[in-house]
Design a protein around this nucleic acid. Structure first.
Lengths: 225, 225
DNA sequence: CTGTTTCGTTGAACACGTTCAACGAAACGC
DNA sequence: GCGTTTCGTTGAACGTGTTCAACGAAACAG
């Protein structure tokens, strides 16, 4: 099974000849049909012939542009995830402390996945293990979030919320590790409240200073045995 | 697409009638054929007809016992992973400090995955997002490792390696988060040295005491701006 | 304007996962 | 021992992802 290359999308901001305009229209129709079909039927039950029929093209045309069913899923969902992550980063930046910033980020991204649990499960699976070129695209997306977190952590350290020995980049990697593990556990229905699991870990790893507003004080720990 | 139930495996330690003995032989032949085929061809290129031919049964028989191709993969690989995890836990227990215990655990489990990168990628994907009843089996497996880690952390705390406020269960969850994220990043070829990424995060989150033998001292951090 | 090239599109064909009706041998019950 | 039931096995059929040869219209070149 050899991967077929994806076809370049013509840009609508330069003059198009007839062919290019038709290509663009076809791709848009296919993407819209795919989004609807995946949304309604889920990834497994949505089938290419039905998506093609929705877009009023043949299944061969669908695959001509998107290579395979997985890549079509990525293409159908990628921008919306990108937007959700942008929104989540913006939500985080509005919070007063790093822990609350990360809470806000966690909540916003989880809200995106929780809006459609079933599709989110397969989307998460396919995005975490995507093939090129989508692997690179998802990695770049993750890097963008990681860098935003590191920036927040750097500022928090400057404010005294983190110890001087905290590495913002490492903190961002640790946050993403915790986030993704909780997300996987949630889509697998192993845990019910992923946000809480993320939040409690963050507070154990990066205890809030004693004077942090609106932040519960660390729970007293059992003394050394 | 409805899941077919998996067929019970007869136990070879009780007397079997002719049928049960034949069932057992069939299941063993199918599993061995599947292991070989997945190993040689990878999951996608291995196909059920070829596996069935290797086992000298029909494809219908393969699916009769294992439900679908994914479940066959799980069945083919599960015990070996279980054994690898047991070995990794044992290797961890032999180390003198928690950080080195976790290093040993990390190394041992990564060695299992690194022995066959391509198959590991799909095995990891399918195990993290398994359907019932395999979801429960993998979750139980993960819980077993988590509990072993928590036990190590509890002892480490008693020895003074961790602060009194460290929660061993949370530590184990955080460790697994970091471990899996690094593992996914490695199978996706985003990072080259997952063990090092895990180790450096652990040392930042749980800095070794200053007198810890064979443990590099924490790198001096940049002072508060 | 005309002949040639390009390429988007199609739908038939193929491969493969999966389903399932039919069969026959083992197991069961009387 | 014989009729009945159970169930492991088979292979044909089906659904779906994918491949690809063929076609015709747009684009190009002279």
């Amino acid at each position: 099974m050899t991967r077929k290359p994806e076809r370049e999308t013509p840009h609508a901001d330069v003059p198009l000849n007839q062919r290019e305009a038709a290509k663009l229209a076809t791709q848009r129709a296919v993407l819209a049909a795919a989004r609807d079909s995946f949304e309604e039927l889920g990834f497994e039950r949505a089938n290419l012939r039905e998506i093609a029929a929705r877009a009023q093209v043949s299944a061969g045309t669908v695959l001509h542009y998107y290579g395979d069913k997985r890549a079509l899923l990525h293409a159908a969902l990628f921008e919306e995830l990108d937007t959700a992550l942008d929104d989540a980063i913006a939500a985080a930046q509005a919070a007063p402390t790093l822990l609350r910033q990360l809470d806000a980020l966690t909540r916003a991204v989880f809200a995106y996945y929780k809006a459609r649990p079933s599709l989110s499960r397969v989307a998460l699976r396919e995005s975490l293990f995507a093939d090129p070129p989508w692997a690179e695209r998802f990695a770049a997306q993750t890097t963008r979030v990681s860098e935003a977190i590191a920036t927040l952590a750097l500022a928090a350290r400057a404010r005294g919320e983190l110890s001087a020995s905290t590495d913002p980049t490492l903190l961002s990697v640790t946050y993403l590790s915790i986030f993704y593990f909780a997300l996987i556990a949630w889509v697998q229905q192993t845990i019910a409240d992923p946000e809480a699991l993320v939040a409690v870990q963050l507070r154990h790893l990066f205890p809030p200073k004693e004077n942090t507003p609106d932040e519960p004080q660390p729970v007293p720990r059992r003394r050394r045995a």
